[in-house]
Nucleic acid binder design. Structure first.
Lengths: 209, 209
DNA sequence: TAGCAACTTTGCAGGCGCTGCATTTATATA
DNA sequence: TATATAAATGCAGCGCCTGCAAAGTTGCTA
């Protein structure tokens, strides 16, 4: 171990270059999607703009779609991690609250991505499909909280409501850019708490019913 | 009007043949998907089995995916129609209740379709995406009931909950085949009513909160 | 019933996304 | 510097999908 001292070349030139190439491709693609449309941009053109061979793109992304969505998907993975590794005693709802609390507001690229997606119905559908992955994830986590199966109607309802709340919050984060008032974390939390009231009341009513 | 009497050749041979061809293609495709897998079945093979030219398939279906999903989509269209044309005074919830009440249990082809979809993660995602279309539809309808915007959190929550309920019911309709007890309309209605209790209680709690 | 108009089916050429495989080029290590 | 490892590329090819024009059907009417 004496060989690795103060300087830490742990992440060699290789890794750095890879990271850089990946980002170059993603940025080039995003720019072109925004400028000319998703369908109108070919992988060959992206490759040219990123100064790589078309074949190389597939060393970094699974598909054209993935170039656009992979970054956003990181988000979901992070949430998944938080749900899996949450401390004993904390609930799914707590984890989601914490997650929303830590959400960063969208940067320029996020906005561009959203713009590209919103300009293309097929992409909107694909985005929905990705977001929909959230629901079974939450449902499972909630079922654990409740000590029931994942197909328990209560778990499903809670998961669906929380997903809706989450979607609503992220939508508003974006819509805020285009004219609306700025959406703060407090605002997001307020919505989340409304949803919590809704859930509490709903579950109690089910118990009684 | 004297010319069109008892016999009604309204639907000519042409229309009938078209309908028949469409069905032939759909059935051939479904059989092959079930037998060999969706990805493993090419359009050329489907065309051969259906005894049409490959190019002809696209006269009837928008895409390979559409061959599998178009029939199921009819379902959603019907629901949409019911929501749009529902009598004044009846709510979205009423319309959904009626719809679930009229749902026919799945036939052999429905089951085969489900099997094909469940065997392929990508298809499952696409199915989710299609079902997700239901939610904004319901949301809009509910917002009308409530006299609010479609992005009102209450409308979103109700829509999400109802969608979850609907999904749960149709899932159970299918799962019932594979070992579980048969799921009756009464059972479905019971779930729906539970969800209604949940909604009522939740909305009241939000009001108070 | 012959012939015309409208419609359906088909073939052809080609674009695009994506993949496997082999080769070349660049980086890391001994 | 030589060698092992890994990334980038080129190439050939499959499969989905499209536009377009030709060929084949069907339905109506003179």
């Amino acid at each position: 171990m004496s060989s690795l001292d103060s300087t830490q070349p742990k992440i060699g030139l290789r890794e750095r270059k890879k990271q850089q190439t990946r980002e170059t491709i993603a940025r080039a693609a995003l720019r072109m999607f925004a400028l000319r449309g998703y369908d109108e941009t070919t992988l060959a053109e992206i490759a040219e703009a990123a100064e790589v061979a078309p074949r190389t793109i597939f060393a970094y992304f699974d598909s054209k779609e993935d170039i656009l969505f992979s970054e956003e998907s990181e988000y979901l993975n992070e949430l998944k991690r938080m749900l899996d590794e949450r401390a004993a005693g904390t609930t799914t709802v707590d984890a989601l609250r914490e997650f929303v609390g830590c959400m960063k507001s969208p940067d320029e690229d996020d906005k561009l991505r959203k713009k590209v997606i919103m300009a293309n119905p097929a992409l909107q559908m694909k985005m929905r499909a990705r977001h929909a992955q959230l629901e079974p994830m939450l449902g499972e986590s909630i079922a654990r909280d409740l000590g029931t199966d994942a197909d328990d109607i209560r778990a499903l309802l809670i998961a669906a409501s929380m997903t809706a709340a989450f979607e609503s919050v992220s939508d508003q984060f974006f819509q805020a850019e285009s004219g609306g008032e700025p959406v703060t974390h407090e605002h997001a939390m307020a919505i989340l708490d409304q949803v919590l009231d809704f859930l509490r009341g709903g579950l109690e009513a089910m118990q009684r019913g």
